[in-house]
Design a protein around this nucleic acid. Structure first.
Lengths: 220, 220, 220, 220
DNA sequence: AATGAATGAGGGTTCATTCAT
DNA sequence: AATGAATGAACCCTCATTCAT
């Protein structure tokens, strides 16, 4: 199994199938994966998959909803812990988002690339939740602008840029690489503040350039 | 046709087919599109597609290589026109990248989401070119750091974040929206400079916050 | 449950399953019904069906044999009660056959349309019984012809026509309609006598035309 | 091929497939026949069937609509040729109906037993046509009653019985048997008149009993 | 007595591709 | 240059059936 992050586990058969689906969807995409592919990875028959899920689409939906719901919870919790300071809130949101997305690369990838594979009904349920996640970032940025802490003239674009850059860390980060997920998330927290042009006070000092390091590029 | 950007046009039949493939791959993905889908959009028979292309994979490869090659050329040209100043070079690269990706939303989407649908051989040919594009940004950021113009401690992460945020503008930008592609690209140029913590001089003033505007969220 | 007629009831579970099978086979046909369909209607699991029956085919066979055996018994009894007069015997056979087939529309339908779904062995067992039923009618008609009471030149065709027309009353009769099953069966008794060109004596007077009534057509 | 009657034949491939479908549906029923069965009988691949028909359901619908439409035309023509006399009209309708149904046993069987296999939409289109056919018989019987030529007190039931008995001749008639279809149809014409208790004049004499003959029973 | 899990076979259907015309 | 016919493989999914519990 490629994926190591947190996952649903109500029944043993279910979780093995979901894990297999995640791996397949990550490697070959939803349309590129067959139920038999998934079943084989899970070590069961194709028909067994239908004992737990009504359709291939349900597999996708469960993966996406599960990951997104936990994304939202994790981000909200991190922001709440950060208190009321927009600087701390944006830093926490960015850091948490990077940490979360690197914690399950496969799920992160699937959630961020298979929205179009959702059925119209499932998409209609999913999109608002995705937007809810975005709004956590938006509100931190807007508050920072209103309080004069962020000097960016374009809070919404900046907020979106922050989300995107944090989300897609999962496209190149690999566990065991030269940088830990924690280190990377910390850097992205600071980059988010730079992006919104945060006026830095003593409570959030930026470290000096340490000479750089190597990040291997990813293949897809 | 959704896509309006530049395209190959050696033979009349070829361009119609490529345009159709682009539309289909954008809307339903590579695996989700059938040759007959593409042919129908192009107004021909499925068999006719095989007069121009040997396989469905070839269609994808031509789309991806064409768009990426032109991306590189456009970015290089913009950077060259900017001269030797890293500030101007990064600004130009970001702006050009946004403009280019918004000029053909469908192609941008396909190029950035279907790398895994490439055959291993095609992927091996494609990835280095994608990295070549990244390196244009990297070198501007590194030069800026070396010259003391950019204060970011993590030039490579920053550079990658800039590329990502500029690329994915195409996920929400739509022609006819409240902001022109030019305006957006200009803003992203400045955001890129913020991200790398560019030390701003008189030659590159940042505008004041204009009160915000509406950006419609996208559905996939 | 659509069907209300008599049914086997050796064990409580068995009868619920047979009743469910009857309903399903009636509505969707034998091949169109799955064991799970049947089980769901019976309120049990698919596997539970296999406690009582070895196969889906056994369900069909039991339904068909049960209904047909009782058909034969009922018709024989009715004919026996009618005495030795061929006129009374044919009338009784026709009337009884209509009554029986309308008493369980579902079973009647299944028995008369699923013979081809029987396995070769089961079919070989079933067909002779069906022919035995036909011969009850045949013998009444032939006796009537021999005794000069029926003037039809073609007793076998007439007999077969009688059976068919009585059997397929169940295709349009519905309980609660404008005519009671008894009334209909009485009319069919008389129509059978007309068909064989019975020479009517004082013991079996035909009623006058009462001006017609409405019979709703059925949908399958 | 079992069936020998008239059939659609716009394209060579189409007619072979329809003929094969007819045979399969006749022998094993619609639900009991797979597309692969049909294709094999037609001498093509399963996929080839979809070159001509969009679905298995379309195969059934074409068979049923085609046969029923021609049934109606044939019956209408026969009745029209019979003139205005209800006696002649009913005789012609019955005779024509028997001839038509025996001309294509397979199609007759399918049309009369697979109505429930039609999709709801197709069924809604089919039923009114079937009722239109019934009404040809109804109107002859009703006219005969009104003019005092038929003495049955129940014209609608009698009419329905006539249709049913003529239709189901196809369940036991086989070409090459002891009776020609023409002979059988002539007998059924007379039996229909008996059923409605036609007052016979010199214009429609009934033949004498010829001693009987053998009709082999059918197996399904 | 009844279940949940599992399976191998097969269901209707689609697909990339070929080829004679 | 383009088509219609055809195919073999594969797709998602359902099925009758088995079996440990």
């Amino acid at each position: 199994m490629t994926s190591t992050g947190p996952r649903t586990s109500s029944r043993p058969g279910k979780s093995a199938i979901i894990a297999a689906a995640l791996q397949c969807f990550h490697e070959r995409g939803y349309e590129g994966s067959s139920i038999r592919d998934v079943a084989q990875v899970a070590g069961v028959t194709g028909a067994a998959v239908y004992h737990y899920y009504d359709s291939k689409q349900d597999l996708l939906m469960e993966i996406m909803e599960d990951f997104l719901a936990k994304s939202i919870t994790a981000t909200k919790n991190a922001v709440a812990r950060a208190g009321s300071d927009p600087v701390a809130r944006l830093f926490a949101a960015a850091q948490s988002h990077v940490l979360w997305n690197t914690s399950d690369i496969a799920a992160s990838f699937v959630v961020n690339s298979e929205i179009r594979s959702l059925s119209p009904e499932n998409r209609a349920k999913h999109i608002p939740k995705r937007d809810e996640l975005q709004r956590i970032f938006d509100s931190a940025v807007e508050d920072g602008c209103r309080e004069g802490l962020f000097e960016t003239p374009w809070p919404l674009e900046a907020s979106r840029a922050v989300t995107v850059m944090c989300t897609f860390v999962a496209r190149w980060y690999r566990p065991g690489g030269p940088l830990s997920a924690e280190e990377i998330s910390w850097r992205y927290g600071h980059m988010a503040l730079s992006l919104v042009r945060a006026v830095r006070g003593p409570h959030m000092e930026l470290p000096a350039y340490d000479g750089g390091m190597t990040i291997e590029p990813t293949s897809f």
